[in-house]
Design a protein around this nucleic acid. Structure first.
Lengths: 209, 209
DNA sequence: CTTTTTGAACTGACTGGTCAGTGCAAAAAC
DNA sequence: GTTTTTGCACTGACCAGTCAGTTCAAAAAG
């Protein structure tokens, strides 16, 4: 008998069903929230019987937790890749941060619903999946913190910066700007948004051009 | 007889009950989300019977909407005051932004639950109070946008900045940094957090001290 | 001053509906 | 032959909203 969770076990067919369920759940939960989304809705949107949901996941919360892990895994990989690429090209840490901002924007552009849902749940307390969220948050923020720390060590960034706080602020800057972009002016191009955030990152806001 | 507070009649007693319900609702909804919070819980925490909730508010959603309006009203007033004060002191627009960052932090420090709940609901779609949220969001962001626009007009900020996007990014920076502060390192002082964000705002991250 | 009336505010048991999760036999896929 | 999916009926808990009745302070009447 299969156990859910780890990536290795499932057959290709099962994996496809799981994927469909993730996709259905992510948009519904992003729109309505976890509690307001019913398992029947998820099954219906995925084009699958309700029993199948429970054959593949132990419960609604477990489905959600695995969805979180899955999504943040993608984001983290993408951020890391961006940072490593600029390092390979001999860019400084500012370039690495800039590349990560872009990677973040690309991610949000591709998976807006996931981002929405993540933000909505992250700072809640007293929820079943709280510990999962903490782990998953740390994974993503750690990549940014890593780059900041290396920058301080290199002398590229001031020693006075507060690494965890600055990392959180940078993440927040990208997150909120991107969600606003998607929600309120979706016609803007990614490059446009990226340019605005780059400018802010590099302190080129004050002072004439 | 007492005659005070907001628009339209409402006895002092009634107003006090409403206030208790707001306070009970804000923490519960911040912790658990709107749908997962029951009216019974809100009533119990407020020390009031369930019927009283419905005597004072037409429905659970209406209670929530009025809570949102109430909270964002406080924030907006606080931001505006901060901006005007620096203007009176002859500070530049960067000082105004800095003062608003501080005002934002003070607000979040005082009402963390409200902030949490606001963030969690802001980017959801298809919800009953969607239009309320939009109005209320615009109120707050408009204050920041106003200062940015004035700064561009004065020549203090580059003409190339994208006002709405930059405003969103600044709000996000403060929001996420503050929520992280409250959630994960609550022992930090407000000044500490403010200093870190100021540094980021003024582009004093890169380059040795 | 005392009694009666009024009505706003509040109460909590109750109702009708919803939903997570179960059970299982049969079909489909592999 | 085994794994996975289906379809559907069922249960038990939970919950938003209702409503008939209670409380009580202040106004009106005596």
């Amino acid at each position: 008998m299969e156990r859910s969770s780890t990536t290795s076990g499932g057959s290709a067919r099962r994996e496809a069903t799981r994927q469909k369920l993730y996709e259905a759940a992510v948009t519904l939960i992003a729109e309505q929230g976890f509690s307001a989304t019913t398992v029947d809705e998820i099954a219906e949107r995925a084009g699958v019987a309700k029993g199948t949901v429970y054959y593949n996941f132990a419960s609604k919360s477990v489905l959600f937790e695995e969805l979180l892990r899955h999504g943040v895994g993608l984001l983290t990989a993408s951020l890391r890749e961006a940072a490593e690429k600029t390092a390979g090209e001999g860019g400084g840490k500012v370039d690495a941060l800039d590349a990560m901002i872009r990677a973040g924007l690309v991610f949000i552009d591709r998976y807006p619903a996931f981002t929405q849902l993540y933000v909505a749940e992250l700072w809640r307390t007293n929820r079943a999946w709280q510990s999962t969220l903490m782990v998953v948050r740390q994974q993503a923020v750690a990549v940014v913190e890593g780059v900041l720390r290396e920058g301080v060590a290199d002398g590229e960034f001031s020693e006075e910066i507060d690494v965890p706080l600055t990392a959180a602020a940078l993440v927040g800057m990208v997150l909120v700007a991107a969600l606003d972009w998607k929600s309120f002016q979706p016609e803007r191009s990614l490059d446009d948004v990226h340019a605005a955030l780059s400018r802010l990152l590099q302190g080129r806001v004050s002072g004439r051009r």
